[in-house]
Design a protein around this nucleic acid. Structure first.
Length: 283
DNA sequence: CACGTCACCTGCGTGC
DNA sequence: TGCACGCAGGTGACGT
């Protein structure tokens, strides 16, 4: 479910307690682990993961692309929620002292010294968790952060020029740029008036500049609105009410009144206004 | 290098 | 009500 704004929203809630009745994970010491689905752990067995993580304290939580980054005393815990993951912080024990039952589809839980816990819920089992000494082992392959100001228009344009790929799949390629997913890419392309099948190397510098600006705009707006809530997973944000094209096939383009179309690009459902986002360039 | 296809999973909405 | 089918915020391994 989550793209950059949703992951950012989750990170902030883990730090400040919003969404979790004020409970947060900062300075919580991990005392026990529950692994409910072994393959959640990407690089360690449940036994090794448990041995290594127990006793460590969460010092900091941050984000890189769509990864959650938990800085521990010694190691780094990385989580990727993929399509359907979510996290909860909650009291781990009932008033009578018994351990509160985990939820359906919870795949991993970290119990804290405080009696609280962090639960990793993941219906589709695509999400993964890593425990590593050097976060770069996993994060090193990622492209730049779209909101990082050190990604200049010049750099972004050069990156697009260097590749000969369909624009939308390229923007969603985490090695190229880290954080965009299907929704925010469709929204950014609509706002930049670019067709998802445009070849990246054909963009003018002005088009690259506009695209970068609109990518940042939709991501920032998503963060400001606490992300998007779609379907039955991850409720909390309300940016979905402001989508211009995503999930709006057949509805009217807010800019020109043309019917929004749904097509497939790189096997992903894609939403465009055929009038505002023509494929035949000429600019 | 770029692209298409499939695999990984569960659940929801739709249409018959 | 049941059931088959298509679809879903993601990614990586293949084959061409």
């Amino acid at each position: 479910m989550p793209e950059l704004p949703e992951v950012e929203t989750i990170v902030r809630s883990l730090v400040n307690g919003a969404r979790h009745n004020g409970l947060h994970v900062i300075r919580q010491c991990i005392t026990e682990v529950r692994v409910l689905w072994d393959r959640t752990l990407a690089n360690l067995s449940p036994a090794d993961f448990t041995i290594q993580i127990v006793g460590q304290t969460i010092q900091k939580v941050s984000r890189r692309g769509k990864f959650l980054v938990f800085s521990l005393n010694k190691n780094t815990l990385l989580m990727h929620l993929r399509m359907s993951g979510d996290l909860r912080v909650e009291e781990a024990f009932a008033p009578d002292g018994s351990e509160a039952p985990l939820h359906k589809h919870d795949r991993l839980a970290l119990l804290f010294e405080s009696g609280q816990r962090l639960a990793f819920n993941n219906p589709r089992k695509f999400g993964r968790v890593w425990l590593v000494e050097d976060a770069q082992e996993v994060l090193g392959v990622l492209g730049p952060e779209p909101l990082d100001e050190s990604l200049t228009v010049d750099k972004f344009h050069a990156m697009l020029q260097a590749r000969n790929r369909l624009l939308k799949p390229l923007l969603m390629d985490q090695h190229f740029l880290a954080g965009l997913g299907n929704i925010y890419t469709d929204e950014a392309l609509f706002r930049a008036r670019l067709h998802p099948r445009v070849i990246s190397s054909t963009l003018s510098r002005e088009q690259s500049a506009l695209l970068l600006r609109e990518i940042r705009c939709v991501l920032k707006e998503g963060i400001r609105r606490n992300g998007s809530s779609i379907d039955w997973v991850y409720r909390g944000g309300d940016f979905q009410n402001d989508f211009n094209v995503y999930g709006r096939a057949g509805e009217i383009c807010p800019r020109c009144g043309t019917a929004i179309e749904r097509l497939l690009v790189g096997q992903r459902g894609t939403h465009i206004c055929p009038l505002c986002q023509p494929l035949n360039k000429k600019v």
